[in-house]
Design a protein around this nucleic acid. Structure first.
Lengths: 241, 241
DNA sequence: AAGTGGTCTAGACCACGGC
DNA sequence: CCGTGGTCTAGACCACTTC
């Protein structure tokens, strides 16, 4: 038999993975169920053992299945993602809450060297500043200020003003694929302006989260400073040893 | 040629990995340097291409090397661990600071159903409570209260009273291997007692971190509530999309 | 064009798990 | 015992990068 059956098509091991993933997605295979063995997959898909093996090994690396020596390959239990980067709307949705935002201010600034530096821009670069109050169940929970380069994302402001979420506007309209965010978290208290916007007393403790969001290319895209009402917002993270 | 050269020895691909890791550890290979190609490794170690390939593929999965199609395999830049679970002493050491602790109180309690529940213990279980002020450069930065089962770790209190860090006492004396911690973070303000202990004004905002630390077996080991002086302590995390 | 990693074959024996 | 995954061979052609 020759080596590869066809040219420039999807690799065989990916087709096998796709077939298995589909059966998991449709519920045909449930967590704990056994996935066909290497030999069985090789026979079904008409490939060599090494190819079937490669398909399963990669699925195991991605956490889709678990392999048990001598026993078989099984659908992995769904794993909750920890420390996942979510936009505000996504976060609320994951908690089953309805999210709203009220735009407090939107301007273009050009003399904020510290913010420009964080975004990797020239000190006098034109930067869009969008200030929003975040609400859940019509109660204000946070004040968030986002900054990004006007040059690089000229349409982003209009998209968000139209009610699109910042994350979806970036990922779908601007074609940016977000990768991760580095966050600095500490506590402060509300000044008079924040207190009014969040409808709390002055000097109420607030959780401050400053996040710098990066794309898959490692470029800083957006800088966000958020002030969260204590009690209304708890940050949950997992740390690994 | 036969299949495997010898019985019950280290697999060939692991020997190859070991050889490469050693060259990286000793500085003989530095980040960005090219690792021998699959064909070269196969020749050097007298194995088939697939075996050499397996060795490199796994090293890439572990982040030790990076593979670039058509170009070669290269030593990966050292990756900083994010969201790493560290004890207080370890944290300070990683910042180049000297850490001290002052024990405020150490008692055994037995009527704290909420804490017992978090630790997965019976509501009336005997629980050790250790309250400490954490200092850096002789300045108080945090108030931490730790809880654990007296039954399961009867000697842990004495170890920590002797000046051992909680983490090292657990891992070395008690033979527990810690795996991860789930943390809840929010903001509060200091009551009079905290204010006195941390030498700040009353109502100063504090970062509150409640962490439940788990062993590799998935069992809750210690519950820690910490109050951190704002400005003196910033939490840094990375979230992935 | 030369060298690299990516995909693939058609088998082999070994180690482990469950019946 | 049989079936499973784990390790391994001795090659092949393809796709990509670098020159």
């Amino acid at each position: 038999m020759s080596t590869m059956p066809r040219r420039s098509e999807e690799p065989a091991y990916k087709r096998i993975q796709g077939a298995i993933r589909r059966r998991i997605d449709t519920g045909q295979l449930k967590p704990g169920n056994m996935v066909p063995s290497e030999r069985e997959l090789a026979r079904i898909h008409q490939v060599s053992l090494m190819t079937a093996r490669h398909a399963l090994t990669e699925l195991a690396r991605d956490g889709v299945v678990e392999r048990r020596h001598g026993a078989g390959t099984f659908v992995a239990p769904p794993r909750v993602q920890f420390n996942k980067l979510l936009g505000y709307s996504e976060q609320m949705a994951s908690l089953g809450l309805t999210a709203h935002s009220r735009i407090v201010a939107s301007t273009v600034i050009s003399r904020e060297p510290e913010i420009a530096a964080r975004l990797g821009l020239a000190p006098t670069a034109r930067i869009v500043r969008l200030e929003r109050v975040r609400l859940a169940q019509n109660e204000p929970v946070a004040l968030e200020v986002g900054y990004w380069s006007e040059d690089e994302f000229p349409d982003l402001l209009q998209s968000t003003l139209d009610g699109r979420s910042l994350f979806s506007a970036l990922e779908q309209d601007c074609g940016v694929s977000l990768a991760y965010a580095d966050e600095e978290i500490d506590a402060t208290d509300a000044d008079q302006r924040m207190a009014d916007l969040l409808r709390v007393g002055k000097n109420t403790p607030l959780l401050r989260i400053r996040q710098l969001i990066f794309s898959t290319t490692g470029k800083a895209i957006v800088y966000v400073t958020g002030f969260y009402r204590s009690g209304r917002h708890t940050l949950r993270i997992r740390r690994l040893r």
